[in-house]
Amino acid sequence: MIFTLKIWRQKDAADKGGLVTYNVDDISPDSSFFEMLDQLNQHLIAQGVDPVSFDHDCREGICGTCSLYINGRPHGPLKGTTTCQLHMRSFRNGETIFVEPWRCGAFPVIKDLIVDRSAFDRIIQAGGYVSVNSGGIPDANTIPVPKSDSDASFDAAACIGCGACVASCPNASAMLFVSAKVSHLALLPQGRIEAARRVQNMVATMDSLGFGNCSNAYACEAECPKEISVTNIARMNREFLAAKLFAEKEKQISVSL
């Protein structure tokens, strides 16, 4: 197969950057999108040109490292998959393919197609965890969890933190990501204990990092490679409202030596 690629090239964070056109041929329909880019990069290296930088790691859709905004859609045209699971057979022969980095003020471009997603790490650091060690695997039914809650929690926990929700959102909002993290812990007894503090801290951090707000366009749900549902956003909003209105006030203990 042959393709015309229009790839965003940008030397570093300070560079203005722009689209550069490349032609690739002899691409197998069964090669993945990254294998196609690898092929392009081999050509570029042979010509002494700086190869295209892009993020990738596991190449099996579970790590959340890969990105790429392909023809106006994060992770390309295939639903419920990451870019590494996308194959060239999903494109027409001779098609022009636009490849751009995630666009969000909170995700600055580092080089070419690589963006800095550490904003997500900061949101997780604000509360996306359970503070006590959970120990070894408990015996079944020592902590009862309703099956429906455990299912919903697991569905939310499927979030790999790739940032496709932010990339697709008309407002570059991170609500789907944050709500998935809030939900997966809030639905389980171990996560319930810190739920009120967690949702407030994570939302405050999300807001401070410059992500946009949710206007319920639901592009995030349509593009999420793990098909996380926007019902999680409603759950986060409920948790947030309940925490603001009803959470017990934390006692401030001042220690003087």
């Binding site: 023809n71 666009r103 697709s168 008309p170 992500f211």
Partner: peptide
């Protein structure tokens, strides 16, 4: 929140 916009128009279902 999105200072640099995409070159390609969004094709996401909304």
């Amino acid at each position: 929140s999105r200072p640099v916009r995409y070159q390609h128009k969004s094709q996401s279902e909304t």
